[in-house]
Design a protein around this nucleic acid. Structure first.
Lengths: 194, 194
DNA sequence: GTCTATATCTAGATAGAC
DNA sequence: GTCTATCTAGATATAGAC
């Protein structure tokens, strides 16, 4: 479990790239800026990512995938009732977004939108991340007794709605869209219990 | 009603900018590319937009705002029952996205995410667009007899969910997320009727 | 693995003739 | 209003010493 034995250069570069791309998007983030933020030299970045910016983009998305999956798992397991868990999750996203000064939204949305149809490697990493997150939600619902089909459909809408509400909250600089979405998702989930 | 008497240069530039930024984002779209796509010269672009790329970005977002508002109005008034109207709307978005080869998602999401916290003018135009769209949905719900508070909250979630489902559908290159979101939103809206 | 220096290209923006 | 030519800065990427 010891998981912070001083990060190596590669790890620092990936983290910096992931954070910057979350906030500025893929196109808006420069490799020099990543190197600077990671306290690495440009040569080191290209040493670890000979494929250049695209390869770095893929690594950044995969890193964000893992990080967000952990956040999701933790939030979802905070409550036994999945409806309440989703409310807690939305609340946690709202808190993190607000505390960041409204800059830390979904870690991969910007990159996803900018590269769709133009960078197949990144596109695939993004698709896998979304699938990963949906699977986590679907698993939670199945464990709570929801039938397979309902769990899958609800997972799609839970992730979609959280994504959209995070974007809306970021744009409006308000927690409200995420709070409201959480309550509405809980209501939707509960409507399947009957 | 005669509304296409051959667009002037300014109009062509705005349309091209709006379309390119929808597909590639703000950072990923070059002014030269906009000029070329609009069959205008670089000099003309700067003649109409002396404020440069930022000013052009604002105009592109405002244009997209109007266009999407019309799409929304048309879709929503296709059905008298607001729950059915939202399903129709989601279906229309899915159709347009698929027909574009999965490139034409929300016209301003990419720009919104890239410029948040970094270009106040664009940020504001984006915030106004989202508010505009929410108001349209809220108006539809009020006209159908929903009380003010419910209409406002539901409008927030309808727009948020459509945004997120469009992103999810685009990434997955599948209509399913939008179709499922439409059905779930209808279910949510109906749950307020009782 | 890390560093500096640099090559190459394209971006946003400007100038001034027409 | 439109055009071409050009400036400058910054981007991605590479080379080669250490």
């Amino acid at each position: 479990m010891a998981n912070t034995p001083q990060p190596g250069t590669r790890e620092r570069v990936v983290r910096a790239a992931s954070l910057l791309m979350q906030r500025q998007g893929y196109e808006g983030t420069g490799i020099k800026q990543v190197a600077q933020e990671a306290k690495a030299t440009l040569g080191s970045v290209y040493h670890f990512f000979p494929g250049g910016k695209q390869e770095l983009g893929v690594a950044a998305v995969q890193h964000a995938d893992q990080e967000f999956a952990e956040l999701l798992s933790t939030s979802l397991s905070a409550e036994a009732d999945p409806a309440k868990a989703v409310v807690a999750c939305a609340g946690e996203l709202a808190r993190l977004l607000r505390d960041s000064g409204w800059v830390d939204g979904c870690p991969i949305s910007a990159t996803a939108l900018e590269t769709t149809g133009r960078a197949p490697d990144i596109e695939q990493a993004v698709a896998e991340a979304f699938q990963h997150w949906r699977d986590l939600v679907a698993g939670t619902l199945r464990e709570a007794g929801f039938p397979e089909g309902d769990a899958r459909d609800l997972a799609i809408t839970v992730i979609s709605t959280l994504e959209g509400a995070e974007l809306t909250a970021q744009v409006a600089k308000s927690e409200t869209p995420l709070r409201v979405a959480g309550e509405h998702l809980a209501r939707l989930i509960d409507s399947y219990k009957r």
